[in-house]
């Protein structure tokens, strides 16, 4: 299975407002123990959070690189305010490490210098991917809601263009962003006087329907899925279709264990169903979903058809 051997495992940027020391410990352990090839760093969701962890960034980059990981810096998904415009421009002026762009303001500042395209850029199809590649994109992370047939066509196009293609295979799906902070709203505050209540919810704030069914998670201005996307059983198909990178989104669970489960399947050291069992234990019974991949409602868990 040479194709699977070539696949890279990546760790996406932390979506939540984890405290600075939590982040330091997290990345130290990732550097030492997690079998991932590439790590995305940086604040993608809320520009107000960035000052808390930016001072640690150089040290984290150094630590991860010393451990042999490729480091990529991700840009903000929403760019509206002056500080967001400035942060985006500053990031885009960097020659190193690599940059992942999540807003067209970043594309404008980056010009045709090399960059990666993030999952918030809406690269849904081969025409858009070809356009982006002509402007200097070397790598595209597809939107999380894309179904398998579209992933396959996009991956083939990316392969012909000689650029990387990435799919989120683990963690809560990003479902929406807003200018309004829903964390602040839940606490009777506004975005400007939020007092960083989002820090209390390391895995997002749960929303329940009025008949007590968990449905969504609030993460500041972002809304996420209640279920964790899990495409571990589908990694073989993703590899066969030409996907080059699999993204694990950091959740408040043992991410070293999560990465190991995926790595063992990629290395064929463990059967997918065995790895899936340990993944479920690591995630302490949180619901898994793969509906988007199968073109069904995203929250659904579809059993993979057994090959005849």
């Amino acid at each position: 299975m040479a194709v699977k051997d070539m696949m890279k495992l990546t760790l996406g940027p932390i979506a939540y407002h984890w405290a600075a020391d939590t982040r330091r410990d997290f990345y130290a352990r990732i550097a030492d123990e997690a079998p991932v090839d590439e790590v995305y760093l940086g604040e993608v969701i809320c520009s107000k959070r960035a000052p808390f962890h930016e001072p640690d960034l150089p040290g984290t980059i150094e630590r991860l690189q010393r451990a042999g990981k490729t480091v990529v810096l991700s840009s903000l998904a929403e760019v509206m305010l002056k500080r967001e415009r400035r942060a985006t421009e500053d990031l885009m002026s960097m020659e190193w490490p690599e940059i992942e762009i999540n807003n067209a303001a970043g594309l404008y500042a980056r010009g045709n210098r090399p960059h990666r395209i993030g999952p918030f850029m809406n690269a849904y199809n081969e025409a858009t991917i070809a356009w982006m590649a002509r402007q200097g994109a070397t790598h595209v992370c597809l939107p999380t809601e894309m179904p398998a047939p579209a992933i396959a066509v996009a991956a083939r196009a990316a392969g012909e263009l000689g650029i990387g293609i990435e799919v989120q295979v683990f963690g809560r799906a990003p479902l929406a962003v807003s200018a309004r902070c829903y964390h602040a709203r839940a606490h009777g505050r506004t975005k400007d006087n939020c007092r960083f209540v989002c820090e209390d919810d390391a895995d997002g704030m749960p929303l329940f329907t009025r008949n007590e069914q968990p449905i969504l998670r609030v993460n500041g201005i972002q809304t996420q899925s209640e279920s964790y996307v899990d495409l571990l059983p589908e990694t073989g198909q993703l590899a066969a279709d030409g996907v080059t990178h699999l993204r694990l989104m950091p959740q408040d669970v043992d991410m070293v264990g999560v990465a190991s489960a995926f790595r063992k399947v990629l290395n064929e050291e463990q059967a997918p169903d065995e790895a899936e069992t340990s993944l479920r234990e690591i995630c302490r019974g949180r619901p898994f979903s793969n509906g988007f991949y199968y073109g069904e409602a995203g929250y659904r868990r579809i059993a993979m058809a057994t090959p005849a």
Binding site: A77, E78, F120, N122, P143, T144, E145, A173, P174, L175, A176, V177, S178, A179, R180, I215, L216, T223, S225, G291, F292, G295, E296, A297, G298, Y299, R300
Partner: peptide
């Protein structure tokens, strides 16, 4: 309310 073009809420519940 959501940033248009960046919302998958409907797809999450309905497909």
């Amino acid at each position: 309310l959501m940033v248009e073009g960046r919302c998958s809420l409907t797809n999450y519940l309905t497909g």
